[in-house]
Structure formats: structure tokens, C-alpha cells
């Protein structure tokens, strides 16, 4: 028996993980996407209220490849994807690692609803490549992967699962607590669920909905109550984006966090970006769903504590 038996017994999970990664690549290559790599170490992250970057010398480890990938979109790369490590400070729990693997992809011309379609297509494709049928078991739920998947707006979800409306929740500053305790456990239990149209303040880089400026064209995918992906119709107005970043920095300051400098090159180039949609999907969590794992620790070779 190997001395490091916790690592030895993860072999099956890591073999499945490799097949899932191959399946993801195959899906995007067949769809004509270009695989790209952007630097992991960047001068400044996108200022967002609740995402903290890990400093690396005077720069930072990226929290997602979003800024660099959007600069590529602005330079005429119209369908791109990337699978890379990302870092977020102090994020550790059974569903979080401070260093985790993110899949991010962007396409010109799409909006968030077409992206939901494509995201569903990807997960069903990967499921088939690892020999999964129409159903999967995760966290004690039997989840039916056949189309169509459930779509519910944030407003409706609060109406169905919470005691107070989304407007009240925001007013009382309880949105996150209600989301975690009452709403999330109900999402994606029979079929995967896309929850969409988030309050405008919860989508710093997303386009606002034309018919209702109080919400952003942003969605999250949940399977078995687990949040897997976050996507949106991209904001491509650099002045508006700069204002949003400044607002996020003021929020950061008010809750005692450091502020980040403006990503000026990104902002300078953003106006050349065509209307697009983009999404980030947690690869470790996708592996958890396919393997019915309880903790993210079970699907990576090493956790930080094991190093």
C-alpha cells in the first residue's frame, strides 16, 4: 500500500478528470473554437467587490482570464476558450480551493440565452464521452440531463423558494444569505437549472437588460444545488465599464478591502469588442458532479493542505 494512500485512492477520479478535460477540448475544437493561453500573472485584476486576488510580487495571480480573453475578442478573435488555473484569496471549503481550474469561453454574436444552450450542449457532450447516460446521481438527487433544462429568473426563484422577494432581500442586505440557505439547495435537483437576470449590482462586467435596467443579463448554472458556471452578455461600453469598476472599488473600500488600479489597457480596447457572450465554468466542480463527489478535495491531486 502506498504511503500516501489518500492520493493513491484518488487515481480513478483523476483518470476520469483527464477524460473530462479531453471531452471539453474535443467539444470546442469540433465547434471551431480556438484554444488560447493568457498570462496567469497580471498587473491588476478586475475590481469586483467580493473577489480578492493573491499578490505576486507587485502584480497579482489572475482570478480569472476574463480581462486578457476580452482583449483578444476586441482584437478579432471571435470564438476562443481557455482551461487554466486561477487563484482567489481565502477561498477554501468543501466546494472551494484557493487555486482551482476554470474553463472560460467567449463567442462573438451570442447573448446569454444562446450561451445557456451551448453550455448545456457542452455538459451533455462531455457526459457522453465518459459513457454517462441521460441521468446522473449527485448529492442524492437523480438528475435528468435530457433537454430542455430548467430556466428560472432570480425574481421567480425568490418568489418560489424564499420568504421574501428579491427586492426586499436586497433592501435588507440579505441577498447572499437567502441565496445560499433557501434558493441554491432547490436549484438543479430534477434537471440542471439556469437561474438568470441577476440584480444589476451583481454583474460588474455584464450588460444590463434593455427592457429592465435593474437586472443584468447574467446567469448561473446549478446542478444538484451546486453552482457550476457563471455567464453573461458582455458589457462592451468602456465608459460604463470604468464607472462600474470605480463603484466596485468604492464598495471594496467601504468593507475594508484594498482597491485595485484600473485595468487601463483592457478599458482602452473594450469598445472594439463585438457584442459577445462569455462564461466561466468551474472544472473541478464539473468533475465533482460527474463523479458524485462530496468535496472538491476528492477530484484534485493535491489540496493546499497536502503540499
Amino acid at each position: 500500500m502506498a504511503k500516501n494512500w489518500p492520493l493513491a485512492r484518488r487515481k480513478k477520479a483523476l483518470q476520469q478528470r483527464a477524460r473530462i478535460l479531453q471531452g471539453i477540448r474535443q467539444f470546442f475544437i469540433e465547434k471551431g473554437y480556438l484554444e488560447v493561453e493568457t498570462p496567469h500573472r497580471i498587473p491588476t485584476p478586475a475590481p469586483e467587490s467580493h473577489i480578492d486576488a493573491i499578490p505576486s510580487d507587485t502584480w497579482f495571480l489572475h482570478t480569472s482570464p476574463e480581462l486578457c480573453m476580452k482583449r483578444m475578442m476586441a482584437a478579432g478573435y471571435e470564438k476562443i476558450f481557455q482551461i487554466c488555473q486561477c487563484w482567489r484569496e481565502r477561498e477554501r471549503g468543501s466546494l472551494h480551493l484557493p487555486e482551482f481550474t476554470l474553463l472560460e469561453w467567449y463567442r462573438a454574436g451570442g447573448d446569454y440565452h444562446s450561451l445557456m444552450e451551448e453550455c448545456g450542449g457542452l455538459i451533455r457532450f462531455v457526459g457522453r464521452t465518459i459513457g454517462l447516460g441521460q441521468k446522473l446521481i449527485f448529492r442524492g438527487h437523480e438528475i435528468d440531463l435530457s433537454e430542455p433544462w430548467e430556466r428560472i429568473s432570480v425574481k421567480e426563484a425568490f418568489r418560489c423558494y424564499s420568504k421574501i422577494s428579491v427586492a426586499k432581500a436586497l433592501e435588507q442586505n440579505l441577498f447572499d444569505e437567502i441565496m445560499v440557505q433557501d434558493v441554491e439547495p432547490k436549484l438543479g435537483v430534477a434537471k440542471p437549472t439556469f437561474i438568470y437576470d441577476y440584480p444589476a449590482m451583481r454583474g460588474a462586467l455584464a450588460r444590463l437588460k434593455q427592457e429592465d435596467q435593474t437586472v443584468a443579463e447574467r446567469f448561473e448554472l446549478y446542478i444538484g444545488g451546486l453552482e457550476l458556471a457563471n455567464g453573461f452578455s458582455e458589457l462592451v461600453d468602456s465608459e460604463e465599464q470604468r464607472r462600474r469598476f470605480q463603484l466596485e472599488n468604492r464598495n471594496r473600500q467601504s468593507i475594508g478591502k484594498c482597491t485595485y488600479s484600473m485595468p487601463d489597457k483592457f478599458l482602452d480596447e473594450l469598445d472594439s469588442m463585438p457584442p459577445s457572450a462569455g462564461i466561466a465554468l468551474g472544472v473541478d466542480r464539473l468533475v465533482m458532479v460527474f463523479l458524485n463527489a462530496e468535496a472538491i478535495d476528492e477530484v484534485v491531486a493535491f489540496t493546499p493542505e497536502e503540499l
Partner: peptide, 15 residues
């Protein structure tokens, strides 16, 4: 028992 939660783009919650 301890669970770290962070609903998309939201704040960190320690349950």
C-alpha cells in the same frame, strides 16, 4: 461543522 459558501459574485459566508 463548517461550510464556506460564496454564491456567484456574492460575499463570502461562513456557515
Amino acid at each position: 461543522a463548517f461550510e464556506f459558501s460564496k454564491p456567484g459574485k456574492g460575499q463570502a459566508l461562513y456557515r
